[in-house]
Design a protein around this nucleic acid. Structure first.
Lengths: 197, 197
DNA sequence: CCTAAGTCAAACATGGGTGTTTGAGTTGTA
DNA sequence: TACAACTCAAACACCCATGTTTGACTTAGG
């Protein structure tokens, strides 16, 4: 006769560890190749495919969890960056401390493009962008960033630059060590107000 | 008794027209969605799937033909642009007259990423970029464009900006009519030499 | 007008990814 | 120790895209 018994929600320790492994593996795989297979991810995690389905009922469900985790982790990293002071220096700090991260998130979100609803994509995309947006907006207010373009456009270009840097590295045309400086220079050049006339 | 007869290489007029339809349809479909199906393309062309396979033996073969055609068409358009004079103005002309085109080509090449060999991709990618590269290089030589970054990086960013503009339009955040000016401003800002210090 | 060329729908074979079931073997934990 | 939770390989059903075959049909063009 079951008295209390183990809570039905409790998971065994090794199972929880495996869930972590799966998420890590998925982040790795999807971060590199948006089309990574459930089998690929299971293999990367060193587990069987069935075990994977034991923890995540479907591909979209797994991807959703992955995206959530990446964003959570990203928010955590970004929140530790000091965004006060000169917006240009703040942006430099932000990029230096997170550009790889942001790009990976982008890659994974792109991977999720086929699996999640557009609404969910937009939501996931918007939330972490808020931080950058606030910073850019402040720079605009202080007259340090150009104001002749929509801020949404500036953010989009910034993201594209990060993405482009990753692609250049992947193709061997850019040294990863050079990337952060190059990105910062490019972005600051982009945000710099044009000399009138 | 067959005397000369119709040359075995000759194709009937309607067949040739259909090949055109297929290429047009493929450009449209792949330009929008890299994963477009052979069935999708056939439908877009108003033809049967079998007819499509009658003209192109496989998906890679079709995509290769599509890419070739897009590049050919692109070269034709770009070659009509006057690239002399102030590099900034020349670049403005180039972007205004071809940005949609260039982005579509990029999208299609991205679509081909899975079907064609990396070597072929690089070849297809490099050839049309030469024109832009020459222009940017001239601008650098004349001291009008920044020289503190690799030209390959500048080109990569330029491409990313075009791609980003297309994405912004697709998501409804950017009015297509505003795009060319915005792109030009952004690119010129990017290429503008930073005030030393 | 006749014929070869071309088109098409339907049906098939194939391959690959998803998701499920089974049944036997491990391992955490009480 | 003993039981429940967990894992796993193998095999399955399913879907979807690619590519092929067939056989009847339309049509271009001599």
């Amino acid at each position: 006769m079951p008295v209390h018994g183990p809570r039905p929600t409790a998971k065994r320790a090794d199972a929880m560890r495996n869930v972590e492994s799966i998420l890590d593996a998925a982040i790795t795989c999807l971060g590199n190749r948006p089309n990574a297979t459930m089998a690929d991810i299971a293999k990367e995690a060193g587990l069987g495919r069935v075990t994977l389905y034991g923890h995540f009922a479907s591909r979209p469900e797994l991807i959703d969890a992955v995206v959530a985790r990446v964003i959570e982790h990203g928010e955590q990293t970004l929140s530790s960056v000091d965004l006060d002071g000169d917006p240009r220096e703040a942006l430099t700090r932000l990029i230096h401390s997170s550009w790889r991260l942001v790009d990976q998130a982008r890659s994974i979100i792109a991977a999720a493009q086929d699996e999640l609803s557009p609404a969910r994509i937009r939501q996931l995309h918007a939330d972490p962008a808020r931080r950058v947006e606030a910073l850019i907006r402040r720079g605009c207010d202080e007259g340090l960033f150009r104001t002749d373009m929509p801020i949404s456009w500036l953010i989009a270009v910034l993201q594209q630059i990060l993405h482009g840097a990753s692609a250049e590295i992947a193709s061997g045309r850019l040294d990863p060590a050079d990337a952060p400086e190059l990105i910062v220079s490019t972005v600051l050049g982009l945000l710099n107000p044009p000399d009138v006339g």
